[in-house]
Nucleic acid binder design. Structure first.
Length: 902
RNA sequence: GGGCGGUUAGCUCAGCUGGUUAGAGCGCCUGCUUUACACGCAGGAGGUCACUGGUUCGAGUCCAGUACUGCCCACCA
């Protein structure tokens, strides 16, 4: 990068100008590419793969900002760092998107054959698949694009088939006819997780089923779904329910169908609910299915895969299910069999993708046998143990329980989907024998009889089946690749808590099954982004914000900073533009501070040693270096604890409140007067290290400034592996305890307090800024420090003249005015005529009273033997020191008050 | 029906293992074109940390309960 004249540095940071150039530079230099160094422990994050045709929303931006920060931090720490990006084919979501487009053209997928349709989806992927990529670059993501994977790539596809085969051979994948969740719109089975339950206002229908040998009497059942009665094969009551004692064991006649069905007793029935009698439809309700199994009731499918009534539904055959509901209710009413209806609010399952009402029905599907959590060798059992036993740490910890709880109630996972887009199930059925050939490679012939009349299973696998392999399949599994053996198990899996079950749990289960190792050591979960009112952001609500638009407007760094600051891990975040403004202002502050430093050091000699910076001699320098050291330690600790927001807050405070507001202002004074050691090397040193500390969070602006800064500074050889090439490959600062200087910190704090006190008094008394005040300071124990800092005090508090005396030499006749007691200092502003002396006296008395109250509280505490015995020694010491300083303060205030009144 | 959060300044939120007089951003008030920055500077107002009880020398922080509120899970016919 060429050095530019300072006058060329614009006063406002223009993010758009620099981001593209810098990102391209990083790419060109291959900084993102992970390299294996067997002597070091790698840091690996597998990026959660967004939908290949999706667009990044704010949630993605948050996720990627967090991950990029972690990755950049580790890269700077010198860890071989891999952040592996990828995209997901997102079976049902992508197919649904294409089908919607077809629908807009008045078409549907059944007008195409499978190959044609899949080709349409590929067209869609090719058209929109690059968007995610481009957006990721705009966000500055330092992912290793050379290792990018797509779930349908040959490698991950092979991993899918291999997993299927292995689990099948171990008897853990099986094909079975059982009741599953069916989406009639998508025409596919869904897993339990893909069903969203929501409350809807419905109707509870009370239907009479006459008793066969006593038609004058009947059993009344209550149902929200009268159409399912067509498939009833029994009525169930609680065996001990006195209301139904007579009916139990008898036969009732199913109206409309005129079918005789038994009344059975089952413990699952709640006598208090409805009438206490349940119509049993084993074909279309999971509970009924179980009851049916227990009592050997036949299963009748009366709702087909298209959502219409089947042939088994008699005259209603072919009718759409909800129309059938209305018409059957009407017919029952006409027959006098509808006793009554009630409005009833209940929860109904909807397809997560298309929101259609899910229909439970019996279907032949593939399942993974997950076993039980307490079986040590089952899939669920091992996944449970991994978290329960601490092999995987979950941050924040509370999600541990959520995860374990879910596994404790897990049921087998339905993995087949009746879709066309996805990994087709690697099973071939023989046309000559009944044998199933399960294979990684497409088989040429039946493994049972050798016949070549093979037909592959029509179904594809649940998208989450392939996502569940992601940490190892992206690294090359099932091949024993160098990447796999080096980077697996990965370090951190970072994602939103909303896909803990969908994805995280599946990765743990399948990762352990396939590799015998956990897929990652730490799960770090972030919260959801909400809008200003706290509502979830969604396209249908129309309250989404486009990350790229925000990035254009405020800069990527500001966007990233705004998303990740001021929030705790796992907590949701209400996102408003005012957050962005604040972050943008901070970026601008950093920019301008840097501009000042760079302008100041332009062409100046004496900058040697700025990088390692020998311990400075000047108090202000010692102070800022000590503060930097402290902040460096805190930031590192926060990062180690995944408290990114905390780390950023600390940097924000340090840069703005200490470096800019105080140190730079102090430094200006020395720079103008030319006296004392030059602050320039310190300014350069502190700025440079601060930029490095900030880089993981604000990658672009820090790089831009850093390169400009280094171009103006002498090259230093040092112990840290210094580079001027890029901040992103320079070392992350760690705390160096020998920079601590408690004395400098205390003394500068005192100076700052004194300045604040004078400024305060000036503001209170409405003394114009350009009017100088006189000040007489009684320094007491801080004489030397005050004398040495007198210029700073004089200039920053606009005091002229400033006279400093030791405690015992201060003149008594300094005139009346305002007296400020600042810790051990007494600052007197002789303002006779300006100040209302009575008011000043009152103010001092209030201050004294306040001090006395505090003193009483602290002295009570310190004199409490329990406190002295039980509190930690350093706490006792702190309190004792406080007591002492309060006593001194009170004494001074007393003396002053006495003087005034005297 | 279970489980998990949240309730701290007008608003949005930090506050890690209990220990100064509880913090930030935004907003508000008062000054200020002070040659890095008005996306700024200086100063200020504003909080019985939801409520009740308990543990403790000491509680925003730990425990129990209550009230609101949000979310997750569950086969509420």
């Amino acid at each position: 990068m060429t050095s530019r004249a300072s006058s060329d540095i614009p006063s406002a940071y223009n993010a758009a100008d620099v981001e593209k150039r810098i990102y391209q530079d990083w790419l060109d230099k291959d900084y993102f590419k992970a390299t294996i160094d067997k002597d070091k422990t790698p840091f690996t994050i597998i990026m959660p793969p967004p939908n290949v045709t999706g667009e990044l929303h704010l949630g993605h931006a948050l996720e990627k900002a967090i991950e990029d920060a972690l990755v950049r931090w580790h890269r700077m720490l010198g860890d071989p760092t891999l952040w592996l990006p990828g995209t997901d084919h997102a079976g049902i979501a992508t197919q649904w998107a294409v089908e919607r487009r077809l629908a807009e053209e008045g078409k549907n997928r059944h007008q195409f054959d499978r190959e044609e349709f899949v080709e349409l989806v590929w067209d869609h992927v090719r058209k929109f698949g690059g968007v995610i990529h481009e957006q990721s670059r705009r966000l500055g993501l330092s992912a290793d694009w050379s290792r990018h994977k797509f779930t349908l790539d040959p490698g991950p596809s092979r991993a899918v088939r291999t997993t299927f085969l292995n689990l099948y051979n171990r008897g853990l994948i099986y094909r079975h006819e059982r009741i599953i969740n069916w989406c009639p719109r998508c025409a596919t089975a869904l897993s339990d997780l893909e069903v969203d339950y929501s409350e809807v206002d419905g109707t509870l229908y009370y239907i009479r089923y006459p008793i066969a040998d006593d038609p004058a009497n009947h059993v009344t059942v209550a149902t929200t779904r009268p159409e399912t009665m067509l498939g009833d094969t029994g009525v169930a009551v609680h065996p001990d329910d006195p209301k139904h004692k007579d009916a139990l064991g008898r036969t009732v006649i199913l109206p409309i169908m005129d079918r005789s069905i038994p009344v059975v007793g089952d413990e699952a029935i709640q006598p208090e609910f409805g009438t206490g009698a349940l119509k049993v439809t084993p074909g279309h309700d999971p509970v009924d299915f179980d009851i049916g199994q227990r009592h050997n009731l036949p299963i009748i499918n009366i709702i087909g895969l298209d959502g219409n009534i089947t042939e088994a539904g008699g005259k209603y055959a072919g009718m759409e299910r909800f129309q059938a509901r209305r018409e059957i209710a009407a017919e029952l009413d006409a027959m006098g069999m509808l006793e009554k209806t009630e409005e009833y609010r209940h929860s109904v399952g909807h397809c997560q993708r298309c929101a259609s009402v899910v229909e439970p029905l019996i279907s032949l599907q593939w399942f993974v046998n997950l076993g039980k959590h307490d079986q040590p060798d089952s899939i669920a059992g091992r996944a449970h143990a991994a978290v329960a036993g601490g092999d995987i740490r979950v941050v924040p910890e509370r999600f541990n329980r959520v995860y374990l709880n879910w596994l404790e109630n897990i049921r087998d996972w339905c993995i087949s989907r009746q879709l066309w887009w996805g990994h087709r199930i690697p099973v071939w059925y023989c046309g000559d024998c009944s044998h199933m050939t399960v294979s990684v490679e497409d088989p040429a012939s039946c493994s049972g009889c050798g016949s070549t009349k093979l037909e592959q299973d029509q179904d594809v696998l649940d998208t989450w089946f392939s996502s569940g392999l992601w940490p190892h399949s992206t690294l090359g599994w099932p091949e024993d690749t160098e990447d796999l053996s080096y980077f697996y198990s990965t370090s951190v899996l970072e994602t939103g808590y909303d896909i803990l079950f969908f994805w995280v749990a599946r990765m743990i289960m399948l990762g352990i099954e396939n590799t015998g190792e956990v897929p990652f050591r730490t799960v770090f979960l972030h919260g959801l982004i909400r809008d200003a009112t706290g509502a979830k952001m969604s396209k249908t609500r129309g309250n989404t914000m486009d990350p790229l638009e925000l990035s254009d407007k405020y800069g990527t760094d500001a966007l990233r900073f705004a998303l990740t600051t001021g929030t705790a891990p796992g907590n949701d975040l209400r996102f408003t533009e005012s957050r962005l403004e604040s972050a943008r202002n901070f970026a601008n502050k950093v920019w301008n501070a840097a501009r000042f430093v760079m302008t100041s050091l332009e062409g100046k000699p004496g900058l040697d040693g700025w990088h390692d910076l020998p311990l400075p001699s000047h108090r202000e320098d010692r102070w800022i270096v000590a503060r930097l050291d402290r902040v460096t330690a805190e930031v590192n600790t926060s990062l180690e604890n995944f408290e990114l927001g905390d780390a950023q807050q600390k940097l924000y405070d340090f840069i703005w409140n200490e470096f800019c507001d105080w140190y730079i202002e102090m430094a200006k004074i020395r720079m103008r007067s030319g006296t004392g050691p030059s602050p320039l090397p310190v300014l350069a040193h502190v700025l440079e290290r601060t930029l490095r500390l900030l880089h993981p969070f604000m990658p672009f602006i820090t790089e831009e400034i850093w390169q400009n800064l280094l171009a103006r500074l002498p090259q230093e050889s040092d112990s840290e592996g210094n580079t001027t090439e890029s901040i992103m490959i320079s070392p992350y600062p760690t705390a160096n305890g020998d920079r601590r200087d408690d004395q400098a910190e205390e003394e500068i704090a005192l100076v700052m307090q004194a300045i604040r006190a004078v400024r305060n008094a000036r503001a209170q008394l409405h003394i114009p800024a350009n009017q100088n005040l006189e000040a007489v300071v009684q320094a007491n124990g801080a004489l030397q420090a005050l004398e040495e800092e007198s210029e700073v005090i004089r200039v920053l508090s606009r005091v002229e003249p400033l006279r400093i005396y030791s405690g015992d030499s201060v003149p008594t006749n300094t005139g009346r005015g305002v007296t400020l007691v600042v810790d051990q200092l007494v600052v007197h502003l002789p303002l006779e005529g300006v100040v209302d002396l009575a008011a000043e006296s009152l103010r001092l008395q209030e201050e004294r009273d306040d001090c006395a109250r505090n003193l009483e509280r602290v002295s009570k505490l310190v004199s409490n033997p329990n406190f002295r015995a039980k509190a930690k020694p350093d706490v006792v010491e702190t309190e004792e020191e406080r007591l002492k300083s309060l006593q001194e303060r009170k004494q001074r205030l007393d003396e002053i008050i006495q003087q005034i009144s005297g």
